[in-house]
Every structure is written in C-alpha cells, then in structure tokens.
C-alpha cells in the first residue's frame, strides 16, 4: 500500500446540461484524515460526492484510489474497492431489521453448493459486533430500523460500510435532520471510524460538525475549490464566514 493520498481527484468536472456543477477540482484526501467539504448551496458539494462515489460519471477529470486511476461503474463497484458512501436518506430500508440492513446486498449464507440458506445467526452476531465497534448499544438485531433514532440509524448505515471493510467512507450530510444529542452521537461515530484508521470525507452544512470532527476543510464555491486548510483554531463562526466569503 502506498503512502500517498488514499483518494486523489484531478481536474474533476461535472456538467448537467448547461450547468457546470464542478469546474475542475483537484483534491487529495490523506490516509486516516477526516476531511470536511463545505460550501453554500450550489457550490458543487453534492456533485463532488456523487462523482467521487461512483453514483455518476465525471464529465472530465480523473479519480485515483491508492494511487491507481479508477472509474467506478456504480457505488457498489466503489464499495468493492473499499470506498463506501453513506447517503443522507437512501441508505436504509426502514422496515427491514438491523441485521438485514447491515448485510443488505451481501448476505451471509451457509449450505452445500447451490443449496444455500441465509445464516441469520451469523449475520446477527456480525451486525452486533460491528455496532459494538461503533460503541452502539443496540442489542436486538431483528428490530426494524424504523424504530431506531436518527443517530442509531446512522450507526447502522456506518456498520454496513464497516462490513465491507471500507477504508474510505464518504458521508452526505450525516447530521441533517438530527437533534442535538443525535448529532453528537454521529460525531462520535465519525471519530470512531478515524480511530480505526479509516478515512472519512463528509459533506456538511453544520459547521459544528466540521469543527468537532474534521482535520481539514475544503470550501467549494461555484464548482471550484475556494479554500483548503486545517480546521485547527477555527470555530464554527469563523468557518461560516469563510464559506460566505467564498460564495460572495
């Protein structure tokens, strides 16, 4: 494994018809860091996440993972290469159980040859162990996700990323629509990922998230990188000012 950036974007551009959402972004994400991507509405945050995660192809530019140029055909393709994306609303099936959600698309089975049945016990054990690593106290893996709090749901979504052993986790507005205490829980989860040596890129509107968990912040404006700097010494108000100045 190389020691260079885990993810490198070069000249990344994305056009939607006449709209240029990204106009050539260069970005290196260092191994093990938590990088926040900020910017006003329309700055290109979501487009950057979609293109980097494999949900949409870039119009131009290059993506390298571990120093190798890659082109993801789908988010699932990216997942197989160690890059997991946690989408704001789309991550979970509310009425399926915690274990089913953690193992969605990669269920464990046992049996002989083509005669394979789901190994529900192993999935419940596995899901519990993954959630324990996130300091989650969830115990009943058969409980439907709809009965969980917003923070617990994020834990389940992150547990799925861990199940794939993702080294790089992209998160889209992980605390949007969450209460104060739940947001704090999600920040804890992000720090746990970092402690495990995983790299996290998060797009967030909430500057408190950014100052609480991020090592560095990239500010986008008008589809370009306007600023890139360590978060050290900044508070939420400073950051808000930086974002507003960049947009002006």
């Amino acid at each position: 494994m190389s020691t260079g950036p885990i993810l490198a974007l070069r000249g990344l551009a994305k056009r939607y018809g006449a709209v240029e959402a990204l106009r050539g972004v260069d970005l290196d994400v260092a191994r093990g860091e938590v990088l926040a991507i900020c910017g006003d509405n329309g700055a290109g945050k979501s487009s950057l996440l979609k293109v980097a995660s494999g949900a949409e192809p870039p119009s131009a530019g290059e993506i390298s993972l571990d120093g190798r140029a890659v082109s993801f055909r789908s988010p699932h393709d990216a997942l197989g290469m160690g890059l997991a994306t946690i989408y704001q609303d789309l991550a979970l099936a509310p009425r399926l159980s915690i274990a089913q959600n953690v193992y969605m698309g990669s269920e464990l089975t046992r049996g002989v040859g083509p005669l394979r049945l789901l190994d529900k016990a192993a999935m419940a054990r596995g899901a519990r162990a993954l959630l324990a690593r996130l300091n989650s106290t969830l115990d009943d893996m058969a409980a439907p996700v709809e009965h969980l709090s917003g923070g617990q749901r994020q834990a389940v979504a992150i547990a799925r990323a861990l199940r794939w052993d993702a080294r790089l986790v992209l998160m889209d507005e992980p605390t949007a629509a969450l209460g104060v205490r739940e947001s704090a829980q999600v920040r804890e989860l992000i720090l746990r990922l970092k402690q495990e040596g995983r790299t996290v890129v998060l797009v967030s509107h909430d500057m408190r998230d950014v100052v609480a968990v991020a090592d560095r912040v990239v500010i986008l404006a008008g589809g370009r990188k306007a600023q890139e700097r360590p978060v050290d010494g900044l508070d939420a108000t400073d950051l808000t000012r930086l974002v507003m100045n960049a947009a002006a």
Partner: peptide
C-alpha cells in the same frame, strides 16, 4: 420492495 434505491446502492 422496501427501499429500491438503497438496495440498488448496496449492490442488489
């Protein structure tokens, strides 16, 4: 059936 988009993103 429960969450088509989530399932697709998870590789189903």
């Amino acid at each position: 059936g429960e969450a088509g988009e989530a399932a697709r993103l998870a590789g189903v």
